[in-house]
Structure formats: C-alpha cells, structure tokens
C-alpha cells in the first residue's frame, strides 16, 4: 500500500518537474507546479508529518497566487511593449 502511494507520489513529481521544464506557456507551468506540489504533499503525508503537510497544503495556493499575479502582470507589460512597437513578439 505505502509502496504504491510512494510510487504515485514520485510519478506525480516527475510529471510535474518535466511539465515545468518542457511546457512553454507560463500558465501551464503553474498547473504543472501544482502537480509537483501535490506529489510533494503526498510524500510528506507518507512520512506521516501531518502538520508539515498542513503547511505545505497552505503554502501551495500562496505560491500559485504569487505565480499567477506575476505572470499576468508581466504579460501585461510585454503586451504594452508590443503595442508601442518596442519589441516584436
């Protein structure tokens, strides 16, 4: 049972890591990061540190929020630059 779960956790983390590296669009990367984080959460639970798991679960949305805001903002800035003809997309 535990072995299966740890395999699942590791698989989730591998998928997440590869997804972050290989996917092009930043928003896809955010999703993949959530998968990575989920795998990590699972492994913390496997190690039976529930308080840590609680914190990891709480910090997940926090980092996602940060990512999304940064990405949206930087997109806007870049769109502005393209609009004014400074850079070409």
């Amino acid at each position: 049972m535990e072995f299966v779960v740890s395999i699942i956790a590791i698989a989730l983390m591998i998928i997440g890591a590869l997804g972050i590296i290989l996917l092009k669009k930043p928003l896809d990367k955010v999703i993949m990061f959530s998968i990575l984080d989920a795998g990590f959460l699972l492994s913390v639970v496997l190690f039976r540190y529930l308080d840590v798991a609680l914190f990891v679960a709480l910090s997940g949305p926090l980092s996602t929020l940060v990512f999304i805001m940064a990405i949206v903002k930087i997109k806007e800035i870049r769109a502005k630059k393209v609009e004014s003809g400074e850079i070409h997309d």
């Binding site: 983390m13 997440g16 890591a17 972050i20 590296i21 930043p26 990367k29 990061f33 990575l36 984080d37 990590f40 492994s43 913390v44 190690f47 540190y49 980092s63 990512f67 940064a70 990405i71 930087i74």
Partner: peptide, 20 residues
Amino acid sequence: PIVRTFNTEIASIGVCLVLL
C-alpha cells in the same frame, strides 16, 4: 527570467525531499 525562476522551484522541491 520568469521561466528560470520557475525552474528553481523544481530544485527546491528536490532539496525539500532531501530534508524530509
């Protein structure tokens, strides 16, 4: 640079596992 910062996240999760 945004992508680069994202990728450091992977490494830091790896370090988290080591600490765990």
